[in-house]
Structure formats: C-alpha cells, structure tokens
Design a protein around this nucleic acid. Structure first.
Lengths: 340, 340
DNA sequence: TTGAAAGCGCTAACAG
DNA sequence: CTGTTAGCGCTTTCAA
C-alpha cells in the first residue's frame, strides 16, 4: 500500500550547493529577514536548480503546526452538498483561507468510523483547526473535537447554549422581518413551512415567525405550521397540507428558496395567484429565487461574511486555544422582489 | 498565525509508563507482529491512560508517506460541484479509500496561485497521490502533477491521447446506443444538445451520435447540433434553437439528465407531446431523471465502478510510480424508462 | 521478543 | 548576517 517519494533534494543539499549553512536556506524559504540579498539570491538559484521543495512533514514536526484546516461535512444524505448554500460557503472559506496561507481540506464524515478516523487525523496534527458545516444537534463530532481541545468553529449552533465557538445568522430576526413585511402588505393568515426541526436554525426561524405574528396580533396556531426539509418536494407537499387545512392562507414563509419554489408550484396548481392571492417569502437567496415566477422575495444570509467570520474565529482559537467561546451572529437581509 | 498543540503525550512517555522501549510501543500501535500478548496489553493500557495519539507528522517523516490522497476539483464555475454526479463520485471515492486506510482530502483549485499552492502541498509530501475531477482540456494542473512525478489519476481524459492515467466512461458507445434506440423507434430527425465542446467527453458523445446516425443512414448536419453546458437552462435554450431550425425534430440526445429536463420544458411549451411527438434521451441517471414527466430514458455511467477503478489505479501508481499509464474505460448502460 | 540507536528533513536558539 | 547544534516524535534496523 505504501509508497516512497523518490529522492527529493533536501534542504541540506541546497545548502551545500549554495555554499551556505542550512539555517540560511531555512531563512530564505521562510522569507525571514536578516539575509543578505546576494546570499538570498544564491540560495534561490540553488533551489531552482535542484527543484527543491520543502518537506512539509519535517517542517510540521519542527514547528508543531500543519498550516491547514479542515472543513468537515457531516450531512448524512448530502443534500446540502448539492445546494448552492454549500458551494458558496466553501468558496468563501477557500478564498479567505488562501489569504492567510492555510490550506483548506474538505473531509467527509458520515459514519462513526469516519468520525474516529478524522479525529485521529486532526489530533495527529495534520490540521490546526476544524470548521464544521453540520448543524445537526445530535452529531457527536463537535464534542469529540472539543474534548480533544481542537480549535473548532461551527457553522450554526446546535442549540441555544452552544458550548463551542460558532458563527450563525440571525435566523429569528430574518423570520421576523419577513413576516413583518407580509403583515404590512395586509396579509392576515400567514403560514410557514419550516426546515427540519431538529436543527436549531429551523427552530429559530419558527420562533421568529411566531413572535412576529404575536406582535401583529395575528393567530399562528400549529395548524399553520408544516415541517419540511429544505427540499423542493417538501415545499410542494407542505404547501398542499397547509392549503387543505387553511384555504384562506394569504402569506407563507418558507424554509429556503428551494422550498418556496415548491410551494409556488402547489399554489399555482391550486389556482392561487401569486402574489395577489398569496405571497411567499423564502429563506436563502440563490439564483433560483430570481428564476421563479414571480421572482421570490427572500431572507438573505450574508454567506461571505459568515465565511470570513468563521476563519477569523478559528484563527483566534488557534492562537489562544480554549480560553473562551466565540460567537458571531450575522444580520440577515430581506431582499424584496415583488412589484406588488 | 501559528498555533502550538499543547503537551500531547509522546510515544516515549507511553514507553516509560508501560515500562518498555519505544520500539515496542511503535510495534503495538502499528499492529506489528512479534509482541508478546501481555506486553501488548500493557502498552495499550498506557496508551489509553495517557490518551496518546501518534503524531502524524513524525510518522510521515519517518516512513515518507502521508497515507492520504487528494481529490482536486477545478471546475471554474462549480456548476459541477452542485451536480449529483459530483457528490456520487465523492461518496464512492470516500468509501473505497476508507477501506484502504487512506484519508480523502478534497481541495479546491480555481486560480493559478491555487494550483501552485496545491502543488507545493502535494510535492511537500502531504498526500501520496492525486485524483483529478477536472476534464477540461486546458487545465495545466495535470501536467504540473505529472512533471512532479506525482501519482495521478484523472476522471475522464482531456483528449484522445491522454498521457496521464485515467478512468473514463464509454461516452461514444453510450451515445451510439442511445441514438440507436431512437432509430429503432422510427425517429428520423434526431438532434443533440451537447456538453461544452472543449471537454473531450462531450466530443466523444457527439461523435457517437454522428456515427450512429451515419450507420442508420440518417442526416445529421451541424444544424441538428446545439452546444450546451450541462445546465438545465442551456437545455431549454438549445432546444428552442433546434426547434426553430428543424420543427420536424422527433428525437433528441441531451448532454445530461439536467439538460434533458430543460429540453422537455421547451418542447412542452412548444406544444410537442413527449414522447409521442419527440423522444428525449439524456446522459447521466440521477433522481431527476425519474421525476421528469415522462421519466427519462438515460445513458447511465457506472459511477461506483468509476470510483473504484480510480482508487485502484492510483494505488498501482503509488506502489510503482511512473512505469506506465493506466487507462480504464467503463461501459455505459441505457436505462429505459419509456412505456411507449 | 525486546531495547537501543540512528536517522527522516526541518526550525530555531545560540554563538560567532 | 550566518553557521552550528539540538531537538521535533516516530520507525526501523541491529543486537541482545
């Protein structure tokens, strides 16, 4: 199974060739100050001639640092993985980390053996920190990482009193402002299609919805709530269910743009005009939201800022491990796309 | 930026605690033979008590091996990334590699600096081999890897005489059999919506289409060919274009199930009945294909086998670097879903 | 079956 | 400014 990298030149050979000491070569490849320009050039030439590349394992062993961080994905069914939300986050994280000289490694963790395997990898020092996409409340990995004293930052918290550093969006606030807008428009029977309620984010959105309704003095019983799972199909389904229970519905807050699109389909099929008869607002704001008919008004999460914040937190955590939990909650924004 | 992992116990401390030599501990953690059972147990207890985890950098330095492989993704616009094709491949690769004890690391390479960065990472010995998703002919990364003597396996070749090991599906054959089926059904004006023609896979499919047409003695001029990019939108667009040029079209081969779905939409809008007036066959076979109306007949690529083959080739390459190029071309399969 | 010792290639502290 | 030296933690002969 093993493989041995062939005779890569070592720093020592570079030193010999350049006629300098190893320390000097080390300084050059690390861009350290205090090397005469002529010497530096000498070394660089030797490096080029030999095609030298530093052995990262050796460096890592010496400095006790890997200069890499992992983004672990635990979504059991990977639906997330195919969503734009996911790729946007990854893109942002990748860009941000590149600026700081850290390698981003995505790793998939689905089974328990995967979890153990990854933990050994991380504890073994191959990465300096871990970002976790999962927002499932029952995933043991975050706690395993915390126990191992691994600098860790979660995207989204697992509950109201998360004990690990995280970055989250203001889900409740987003839901509130969405519902507030529906109320302004004069809608009086406002339903919601939620995300999986074992996710805290979905709970928060639901709470925001309920709060806003209460504030407006509107009714919002359980019969106006249907649970979905972010998919379009669940949107279609849930909408049909809601319509059956409350034909008078004139406003809907959906768990995602995808779900909202599903809801639109059902509403159309039921002969409702959108947005005249019923207005739909969805969370997330991806291209899909503009392609629906009519284009969707959405609650946008600032993915770019979320990515940046995650990296910043992780870096703080890496510099000064385990002194505090750091939390950042980013504001959401209502993107209005109705002419009505 | 740096971080120092705190006082993790070392193998030496384990040895001291267990009252044995370091070599013995090493043997135990590597499941080597030739350790008395009682000694082994002693060591394992010490390991457990101390919570010892081997330092992977040190091991890597000693054995000159990382026990990890990278899957690099270079799709510039990431559309791939959000496609089921992608996640299926990743899943398969992950499972297969797990069986062999190798860590799978996904890395994103979009810019040239990304490329250089990754190359240093790989050449630096952090991974033993590289799998490349990209199938774009002009990506320099595969050659950079080859020049660096990195064991590398591509998913799909870049051209007819690929100089790097690869695994591919029989695209031409798949296209041929799809067209053959349309011909059997009595279709006489068969168009195709291709993938991006700078991808060899798309070229092969186009050639397969043309060959089958020629074999059947049907015309197949350029006006029956429209270039798309695997997206649904491109499918809608291309179909409209084709329909404008050849209203008599009665059969279509699409670059993917997604594209095919787009084509269906356009055909419907144009008042065509599917499959009565026009039959559509798409490449790829994902859940979408079953949800369209009517369900799509597709050309299925054996993703599972592709993933397995990639891992196998990479392992061969790692054991015995640079002695040969290894190619595997896997058969495709027509999945028929028409009742017609 | 086990212990001791010699590296693996690099960084960093310390002289010079 | 630069060379020397002492590790970083693990594997792997080689003896015992």
């Amino acid at each position: 199974m093993g493989r041995q990298r062939p005779d890569t030149p070592t720093l020592e050979e570079v030193a010999a060739r350049a006629g300098v000491g190893r320390g000097t070569v080390s300084r050059v490849i690390n861009n350290a100050t205090g090397v005469r320009e002529s010497t530096r050039r000498l070394v660089q030439q030797a490096i080029a001639e030999l095609g030298y590349v530093p052995n990262l394992a050796a460096r890592s062993l010496a400095v006790r640092r890997a200069d890499a961080v992992a983004l672990v994905m635990t979504e059991p069914d990977w639906r997330q993985f195919a969503e734009p939300f996911f790729s946007e986050i990854v893109r942002t994280l990748g860009d941000t980390l590149a600026e700081t000289g850290l390698q981003l490694l995505l790793t998939l963790v689905r089974s328990d053996t995967d979890r153990v395997r990854f933990l050994e990898y991380a504890r073994g020092g191959r990465v300096d920190g871990v970002l976790v996409m999962s927002v499932h409340a029952d995933d043991p990995l975050p706690d395993m990482l915390a126990d191992a004293r691994m600098p860790t930052v979660l995207l989204g918290r697992r509950s109201g009193d998360e004990s690990i550093s995280y970055v989250d969006a203001d889900n409740a606030g987003g839901a509130r402002s969405a519902v507030a807008r529906l109320v302004e428009q004069g809608r009086t029977t406002i339903a919601t299609i939620t995300g999986p309620l074992d996710m805290y984010a979905a709970q928060c959105r639901l709470r925001g919805y309920q709060d806003a309704l209460a504030l407006a003095g509107l009714k919002g019983g359980p019969s106006l709530v249907a649970e979905g799972d972010f998919t379009e199909e669940s949107g279609r389904h849930a909408m049909a269910e809601l319509l059956a229970r409350h034909p008078e519905i004139d406003g809907v807050l959906a768990a995602s743009d995808t779900t909202a699109a599903g809801a639109l389909t059902t509403l159309r099929a039921a002969g409702r005009r959108v947005p005249d008869d019923v207005a739909v607002i969805g969370f997330d704001d991806f291209p899909l939201a503009q392609r629906t008919d009519p284009p969707l008004t959405t609650v946008r999460q600032p993915l770019e800022e979320i990515g940046r914040a995650m990296v910043r937190l992780l870096q703080e955590e890496m510099e000064e491990p385990a002194v505090a939990w750091r939390h950042v909650i980013l504001r959401t924004e209502l993107v209005i796309r109705e002419s009505a």
